[in-house]
């Protein structure tokens, strides 16, 4: 049996680090992992997706359509874009804040968080929406959004890793001076379900 996880967002939001933290945590627990990242041109503000598959009997890192147990959306529109990958009983943990593309700033189509979150509420039974503006107000920066979302995903029972293991992996990979900020972000995310 394997678990499929998709992280999606916009280039520069920290999906790759989040994906590595999940994978490293699972591996540290002795479970085989495969993952695939978007690297290259799309990282410049394009849609980015990480696929992670955890467990035995996996031949490739790519999650099939309808094969994701969890979608972690760093941007609500990107979560909607990846929704066909979610299993019927799958969970989605999504940031409420939209990233307006330059094209939208030029030609307005009325892209909004409300419409995206509304669509997600309609189609996802197990949905956690993280109020990113509130989170940034409390934490002080949007740069740890990835860690907040991972915390919220653990709280939602949507990740096969523990918060302690994840924190250990963060400490191994992130410069020491940012460890405390990341710890606060993780704890904020873990409490998200109750906010």
């Amino acid at each position: 049996m394997s678990t499929g996880i998709i992280l999606c967002g916009v280039g520069g939001q920290g999906t790759v680090l989040a994906s590595k933290l999940i994978s490293a945590s699972a591996m540290e627990s002795g479970i085989p992992v495969m993952s695939a990242e978007t690297i290259g041109m799309a990282q410049r503000g394009g849609s980015v997706t990480s696929h992670i598959r955890i467990g035995e009997g996996v031949y490739s890192p790519m999650v099939p359509l309808g094969g994701a147990d969890t979608i972690i959306g760093f941007e609500p529109g990107e979560a909607v874009r990846m929704l066909p990958y979610l299993k019927e009983d799958g969970a989605a943990v999504v940031s409420s804040r939209v990233v307006i593309p330059v094209t939208e700033a030029l030609v307005r189509s009325g892209y909004s968080s409300e419409v995206m979150i509304g669509h997600l509420r309609e189609h996802v039974g197990r949905l956690t929406v993280v109020d990113t503006d509130a989170a940034v107000r409390e934490i002080g920066t949007a740069k740890v959004l990835n860690i907040i979302l991972l915390g919220a995903s653990i709280a939602a029972g949507a990740l096969p890793v523990t918060a302690d293991m994840l924190m250990e992996m963060i400490e191994r990979r992130v410069p020491k001076k940012y460890a405390e900020l990341n710890r606060r972000a993780l704890e904020y995310g873990l409490d998200c379900a109750h906010k």
Partner: peptide, 19 residues
């Protein structure tokens, strides 16, 4: 056969841009 998600709202195009 595959079940399609219905009523997907219009999504923004995100071509890569200069930072």
């Amino acid at each position: 056969s595959r079940k399609a998600v219905s009523g997907q709202p219009e999504l923004p195009v995100r071509p890569p841009v200069l930072c």
